[in-house]
Structure formats: structure tokens, C-alpha cells
Simulated scan of single mutants.
Amino acid sequence: MKIVADDKIPFLNGVFEDKCEIEYLPGGEIDDLVLKNADALITRTRTKCNASSLEGSKVKMIASATIGFDHIDTEWCANNGIKWTNAPGCNAESVKQYLASVFAQLVIDKGWELKGKKIAVVGVGNVGSRVSSLAKLLGMEVYEVDPPRAETEKSTSFFKLEEIISDVDIISFHTPLTRVGEDATYHLCNSNLLSKMKSTAIVINSSRGEVVDGNALKSALVSEEIEAAVLDVWEHEPNIDKELMDKCWIVTPHIAGYSLDGKANGTMMSIRAISRHFNLGMDDWLPQNIPEPKRKIIELDCEYLSVERALSSVLVHTYPIKEDDLRLRMNIKGFEKQRGAYPIRREFKAFDVVLTNGNKELVELLKSLGFKNVKLLNQ
């Protein structure tokens, strides 16, 4: 048996070596010649899994260590006897952390008070539901928008985007990319939608690049129809629009879900899927020795800080998003390299927080967000 795997998938090296042959390659180099004699493929989004790469191969199983699967031609695979899995929810906490850092920067950089602000969370699946919960914990008024769920669940708790768009302070997209159908998300954020937003509104996209019409967003930013945009995903990436990048407030190279915890979850789900399919006896495999964060202990004196300001300082410590922003701005052509060599980022649970002159409200809020060890040292 032979497995071909993307060489950027962490914790995978050494797992299958005593079970079968495994070949590691950059995702963009995995093609029909590489896959010709492979039985299985473990991949990320950079490998296109379609007739061009798979026809005539021996591949019977594809495991994508990512939440998205639009790189897989699922219909072609189904018609040609190829099973596939993705890793839904693997990086949901990581994207939540990304949004938390954005919210923290709104407090730190723009002087926002988050409590009472209105946010539209568009797409309320594994990721969107966590972002929704995060926003509610921060005291924001949340409008959940998810037409497919609203229809399937016959629920009245969801909102229609066109009905609330003129009222929200933030809109954050967490949808898959779909190009056809009544609820297609391709260019969901377009000139029409942007024209209806507040001039002080913030647009955030960490879902798929094509969900936002980049040219329309650029025009809206130039004409000040909206205040700012945060983009982690881009149309035509890795060849992204520099003019658009220059107009955005925060930009990152498709790494919102790139916490080490999220990557480890994706690897775990892929290994278990391959194991089950080929009966390899690793159905309960867990990643070992995940590195600790460099600054694991967060010490903060809260004496002169509001709860929001103190919380924002803690959140930015776990993930200083402006560092990713600066790296991309300084080297736009390094988009792929920055993704492949992304530094260690651990989620909230990996940090210990020690607060001086804090209060129980802040302690409980941190615990609710996912911090496991929070100590209060009042003087």
C-alpha cells in the first residue's frame, strides 16, 4: 500500500512508515504522475483532487486535513469509487481565536467598546457557531445568518442578511464556497450588499476568498462606504490584489485556522479516517508532544484597565495578529511561504493567566472563552 501526503501536514511524519509506503511532497506538486500508483492521499487545499489528477490512478481514499473541501471534485470521486473525508470543525477554535484577536484590536487600535455592538455572523456551522458564542460573551448583539440551516431546521431564530445589513457594525463570513443554487455564496459580499452597510462598518472574511467580491470591496473602501476590512482569504490567492491589501485594515495569508491545535486536530481526523478505511489499527491515534507557546504565562496588572481592555490585552498575547499582518504587507509574494512556515500558535487552553488587581467578572469571562488556568492575585 502507498500513501501520498502533503509535506506541510504536521505530526504526520513517522505515523504510517511501519504500515505502508508513504511519500511526502509539497501540495502543489501532487499531480497525476505522483498519484498514479498511490492508494490514498492525505492533503490540504492546495492539491486539486479531480479527474486531471486522479483519473487512471489507484487512489481509493482521500483524507483532507482541512475544514474546506472545495478542492475535491466530490461528484467525480463518487462516480469513480473514491471515498473522501475532510476535517469539519478541526480549526474552529483557531478561527475563533483569530476573530477574538480582531475584536481585541478594535478595542486597542480603534477605541471601540464591544459591548452593545451588532454583528452579523454569516454561516453558523462549526466555526460560525463558535464566533457567535464569542461575540455573545463579549456582550455583542448577534444576528445569525444561515439560510440553509433556517430552511432545514424550520427555525425562526436566523435572520435574513438583507433585513439586518444596514444595522450591523460588523459582518463576519464563515460560509463554504458555493457557486450555484438559491443560497450560493460566490460574491455574497458584493457592491449591492456593501452599499447598504453603515459607513462605520467592518467587513471580516475568514471563510473563502471568493465569498467577497474583491473589486467591490476595494471600491467600497476607497469611497469610504464602509470603514474597514479584515481579510484572511482572497480571490485568486496566492496572487492577491495589492491595491486591495493596501486598503484593508488587517490582512493575513489564509491562516485564521492555522493554530497548532487546529492543525493537530485535522491530522488526527485524517489519520483515523485512513486507518478505518484500510483497517490499519490506528482508529484512536492522537498527536503527541504538541509544543508549548513561547510565552505560556500571561501576567497582567488590571488596576487601570477596564474589563474589555484587560481582556483584549490577554487575547492579543495569545495571538498578536498584527505580526501576521506586517509579514504579509512586507512580502506579498511570500503568501504561500508564510503559510507553509507559519510560526507556532497555540489556542487559549494552552496559556496560564495571572491577573493582579483583576476581578471575578474577568476571570469568569476568560474561563468561558476557553482559558483553563486563570489565577487572581489581588493586592
Rank of each mutant, 00 (worst) to 15 (best):
E29I: 05
E29M: 09
D31H: 11
D31V: 03
D32G: 13
D32M: 03
D32F: 03
D32Y: 09
L33G: 10
L33S: 15
V34N: 06
V34E: 12
K36H: 15
K36V: 03
K36N: 12
K36M: 11
K36I: 02
K36L: 10
N37H: 13
N37A: 04
N37M: 04
A38T: 01
A38E: 05
A38D: 04
A38W: 01
A38S: 12
D39A: 08
D39L: 08
D39R: 06
D39P: 02
D39V: 03
A40M: 08
L41K: 13
L41Q: 08
I42Y: 12
I42E: 05
T43C: 11
T43A: 00
T43G: 10
R44P: 15
R44N: 12
T45M: 02
T45I: 03
T45W: 02
T45H: 11
T47S: 08
T47R: 10
K48C: 06
K48H: 09
K48M: 05
C49K: 04
C49M: 02
C49N: 01
N50R: 03
A51F: 00
A51R: 07
A51P: 15
S52Y: 07
S52V: 08
S52A: 14
S53F: 02
S53E: 06
L54S: 06
L54M: 15
L54G: 10
L54K: 08
L54A: 09
E55W: 00
G56Q: 10
G56A: 13
S57Y: 05
S57T: 01
S57W: 04
K58W: 12
K58C: 09
K58D: 04
K58R: 15
K58E: 06
V59S: 15
V59M: 12
V59R: 14
K60D: 05
K60N: 07
K60Y: 05
K60M: 03
M61P: 14
M61C: 11
M61Q: 04
M61G: 06
M61K: 11
I62E: 05
A63M: 09
A63L: 07
S64T: 08
S64G: 13
A65E: 00
A65W: 02
T66C: 12
T66P: 14
T66L: 01
T66E: 04
G68W: 02
G68Y: 05
F69D: 07
F69Q: 07
D70G: 10
D70N: 15
D70I: 02
D70P: 14
I72Q: 00
I72H: 00
D73Y: 03
D73N: 15
D73C: 09
D73M: 09
D73A: 05
D73F: 01
D73I: 01
T74M: 02
T74P: 09
T74L: 00
E75L: 03
E75S: 08
W76C: 01
W76P: 12
W76N: 02
C77M: 10
A78Q: 14
A78V: 09
N79H: 09
N79K: 14
N79A: 11
N79M: 09
N79L: 12
N80S: 10
N80P: 05
N80T: 07
I82R: 06
K83R: 14
K83T: 09
K83E: 12
K83M: 11
K83P: 00
W84R: 00
W84H: 13
W84M: 04
W84L: 03
